[in-house]
Amino acid sequence: MYNQINLLSKALNASWKRNEVIANNIANVNTPNFKRSDVEFEEILKRYVNGDDLTGVTTHQNHIPIGVRSIADAEHKVVNNGGFSTRRDKNNVDIDVEMAELAKNTITFNTLSTQLNNHFSRLRIAINEGKR
C-alpha cells in the first residue's frame, strides 16, 4: 500500500513539474534561440519496474549510490531538447505540440490525483470500519 502511495506521489510530482515546463515553453514561444524542455519520468519509472538499471549496494553511509534502488530514488528530471530548430529564429517550440502536451498532462494529473484520493478513501474506510 505504501509503495503505491509513494509511486502515485512521485508521478504527481513529475506531472506537476511537466506542467511548469510546458508553461515555460509556451511563454517562450516567440523568444529567439529558445530551446524547449521536457520532463523525463516514465522511462525512469519503466527502468525501475523492469529492473533494467544497474544498482549498487552501499555498505557505508559515505558510499555513492549507483542506479535507482527503490521508488524513493526515482526522480523526474528536466531535459533540454536543443538538438533541432524548425524556425529561422532558432526557436524550436511548436505551440500546437505544446498545447496538446498540456492537455495530455492535465488528463494525466487529474487521473493520478483521483487514484491517490481513492487510495486514501479506502484507507479511511478500513480505519473507520476497524473501530466498530
Score class of each variant (00 low, 15 high):
R47S: 10
D73Y: 04
A100D: 09
H76G: 04
L54Q: 15
Y48M: 03
A72P: 04
A103C: 08
A74S: 08
L116Y: 05
N92T: 08
N81Q: 12
G56L: 05
H63I: 05
S85F: 13
H60A: 04
A72N: 15
F41C: 03
V68K: 15
D94H: 11
A100S: 14
Y48Q: 01
N110Q: 15
G82S: 13
I95Q: 07
A74R: 03
T55A: 06
A72S: 13
I95N: 07
S85K: 15
S85G: 05
N105T: 02
L45E: 00
I95M: 06
V57E: 09
V49G: 04
L54C: 14
K90Y: 12
A103D: 09
Q61G: 08
G67H: 02
D89R: 12
L102C: 05
H63C: 08
G82P: 12
M99W: 05
T86W: 10
A74V: 15
G51H: 06
M99C: 02
R69V: 10
T111S: 06
L45T: 01
E43H: 09
L116N: 00
S70P: 10
D96T: 09
E98N: 08
N92R: 07
N81M: 13
I107G: 11
D73Q: 02
L45G: 09
V93F: 00
N110S: 03
K77D: 03
I95K: 02
N92W: 09
